[in-house]
Simulated assay, not measured.
Amino acid sequence: MPDKILITGGSGLVGTRLSEMLIDQGYEVAHLSRKADKFSKYKTFKWDIEKQYIDDNAIKYADYVIHLAGAGVAEEKWSDERKREIYNSRIDSTNLLHHCLAHTNHHVKGFISTSAIGIYGNSGDQLMSEESTYANDFLAEVSKAWEAAAWKMRELDMRTVILRLGIVLSDKGGALPQIAKPVKMMAGAALGSGKQFMSWIHIDDACRLYIKAIEDTQFKGVYNAVAPHPVTNKEFTIELAETMNKPLMLPNVPAFAINLMMGEMSEVVLGGQRVSASKVMRTGFTFEYTYLEEALSSFYAKEVD
């Protein structure tokens, strides 16, 4: 019998691709969703985080739970209400899962949760490992609380893995299409100083890492989910323009202009993290996309004139 994987946030960027890859590898996949969609390709169980409700059958179904759910960090400006939504959608959902796993008969063997390298804050060019000091800004506080909620799964004698995702590269959504848009229009430019580091991971490698965390029982605890070669924002922009065969004409976009447009959310693009992939690589995991050039080519090489 193939293992059954229950995914929260299954219709998001990572969840969509991960579901496809799991099915390709012979797993059964179900999603936990706010609305049970009759037309979904996947078995769908309902949950309502505000009402603290999960269909009991979801927990009984699963051999593994992969927790991706959370309101998008860069989708809209950070009003106080949006910040509460970003925070609560992660922490309340994790607490709800813990409560249900503690009070339902189930056969779940592992819980794989998501976090973010934003936990390290704006760390300059210092290389951050899983043991590095955390920051105190908004995204770091969200990540810390999210991880603390996920850690409670260990009280249930459940193998628990937390993957701190870097910038997930995909042409279907997330940061990359936003960065590529001005480059396509020949108006690409580095942001702020351009010196801030971007620790990225190709979406397929991110999904392969979630699958590895299911299959390899040596995975326990926290891992940075980033490719081995982070680059600066300027290097990223130059590499993207080269891949797309577009010139870079403009000077850097000044930080004050980004602050005006984005408000507090500008810390997402003006701050940077240079994050180590060593711990993941010590598990024997091999990246398909080690260098940025390979990753960008997988999306945009066909567009070269």
Rank of each mutant, 00 (worst) to 15 (best):
I91E: 15
T114N: 01
G166L: 04
A301E: 14
K184G: 12
R159L: 07
K51C: 08
C100H: 12
K83E: 10
G26H: 11
Y53H: 12
V161K: 05
L139Y: 04
E155D: 13
I66C: 05
I117Y: 00
W200F: 10
F287N: 03
K302E: 14
W151H: 11
F285H: 01
G166M: 07
M1Q: 00
A277E: 08
A257K: 01
I214S: 01
E20Q: 15
W151P: 00
A227L: 06
L101Q: 06
E75S: 11
A149H: 01
L97Y: 05
P2S: 15
T160I: 06
R164A: 00
L270F: 11
T290W: 05
T133D: 13
Y27F: 15
I203S: 00
R90S: 06
Y87D: 07
P230R: 00
N88L: 08
H31W: 13
V275S: 11
S113W: 04
M128D: 06
S115A: 10
A295Q: 07
V161P: 05
S40T: 10
F138H: 01
V280S: 05
A74T: 08
D56G: 07
E293F: 05
E294W: 05
T290F: 03
L101P: 04
G72K: 07
I91L: 12
M281A: 14
F138K: 02
K46V: 13
R274E: 04
D55L: 03
S132T: 00
Y120F: 13
I23R: 14
S129L: 04
K195F: 06
L96S: 07
D63Q: 04
E28Q: 12
D37M: 09
Q25Y: 02
S11H: 08
G70T: 03
A190P: 14
H98S: 06
G272Y: 06
S297N: 15
D204R: 11
H103T: 15
L68H: 11
N122F: 03
T232G: 03
K302D: 14
A227G: 13
G272S: 12
M21E: 10
